[in-house]
């Protein structure tokens, strides 16, 4: 397995996320999943980096996002923290 710390990971800004879940669909490896969270617009089913070990840093989710709510971060722990 590659050293994950050398990779970048998606971080989702919930305030900008519209929960369209297009990022979950475009993810080629299934690293993103759906989790119910209390975001800026109340409880919704939001995308989440649930399986960071599956992430191949392709940034497809970032390019798919229609609102610019996803950006790539270097550390998985940091990315997860940012999401919360």
């Amino acid at each position: 397995m590659a050293n994950k710390k050398s990779h970048s990971y998606p971080s989702i800004t919930l305030a900008d996320c519209i929960a369209c879940l297009m990022c979950v669909d475009v993810c080629p490896t299934g690293a993103l999943d759906i989790v119910t969270r209390n975001g800026a617009r109340g409880f919704r089913r939001y995308p989440c980096l649930s399986f960071a070990d599956k992430c191949v840093s392709c940034a497809a989710c970032k390019f798919e996002c229609p609102t610019g709510a996803i950006f790539m971060k270097q550390e998985v722990a940091e990315a997860a923290e940012e999401e919360m």
């Binding site: 519209i18 929960a19 369209c20 879940l21 297009m22 669909d25 119910t36 617009r41 109340g42 409880f43 919704r44 089913r45 229609p66």
Partner: peptide, 13 residues
């Protein structure tokens, strides 16, 4: 309702 549900590509929910 415990959470809003969005179909794929829906910004409304």
């Amino acid at each position: 309702e415990t959470a809003k549900y969005h179909c794929y590509s829906c910004p409304l929910g």
